[in-house]
Write a protein that binds this DNA or RNA. Structure first.
Lengths: 142, 142
DNA sequence: GTAGGGGTTGACGTGGGCGTCAAGGCAAGG
DNA sequence: CCTTGCCTTGACGCCCACGTCAACCCCTAC
């Protein structure tokens, strides 16, 4: 099959396939016209790449998986080098999720504080006689 | 104070300050020599920007906070526009953390599966007589 | 003949937030 | 006078995974 068909079958673009070839990740044979030619095994490799890309793997990180498949192993992650990438990615994900969660909590706290400040000001505006509602002296303003 | 001092006091670089000015975020007065001049309030604005940047806010997203401070409000998040950004960021963070967590679980599952497959093959290699260890027929191979 | 639908290479654009270099000015100190 | 140090503007580099455009070739159908 040619580049357009492979791209369509993998749900990607010809530009992407040419890019992968330029990076040495998915080389192609050529027919008499100089057109790139692919077979079903290339589709398999491409799908492996795309899956990992969707997971957020860098292109270079997919290389061990592709080479593993090309070496004849049943799965892209049948090789130690791929497992190393998996483990490193897991550590990266854990670190990132941890950071993002911490930021999320901080931002949530800031938002809550800012909303409280805003509501306090609004309450002050409604009750002109009492800018300091709590802790005046006693409790019986009325 | 001049640009170098402000950068140092905010823990950033002169390049960054010029970039902010080019983006209209932190304009500077000029002295007789054409040198940028800042005061303490600019440091305040800059610190607001840097804090939000550290949280992962886009530069444009810091603008409402900066304008809020410049308008004389006590905090950068004393204005509704800033609260909108907070809420949007929270939603983005939640979505992102959710996606990353899902990916993390998927990758962890793939890793576990791949390791099991590897261990099974290793076991097969150690026991040449039994490539199918479980569910042979009965249970008493010995 | 020509229009259309494939393909080819090469090269520049994108986004974000700067880093880095080039070429020059201006003031203080030895 | 010269160096040092700070400043100025302008412009290109970076990273990554492509998108997009240009100019051209090839085959088929009408």
């Amino acid at each position: 099959m040619r580049i357009g068909e492979l791209a369509a079958r993998a749900g990607t673009t010809t530009r992407t396939l040419r890019y992968y070839e330029a990076r040495g990740l998915l080389p192609a044979r050529r027919d008499g016209n100089g057109h790139r030619t692919y077979d079903e095994s290339d589709l398999r490799l491409l799908r492996q790449i795309r899956t990992l890309q969707d997971f957020g793997f860098d292109l270079e990180e997919t290389r061990p998986f592709v080479e593993c498949l090309r070496a004849g192993h049943p799965e892209g992650d049948s090789c130690p080098a791929a497992l190393v990438v998996y483990r490193r990615k897991l550590a990266e994900l854990d670190a990132l999720i941890g950071q993002l969660t911490a930021v999320r909590e901080t931002v949530a706290g800031q938002l809550a504080r800012a909303e409280r400040a805003r509501d306090d000001l609004a309450a002050d505006a409604l009750v002109p006689g009492g800018p300091e509602p709590a802790c005046e002296l006693g409790g019986l303003t009325r």
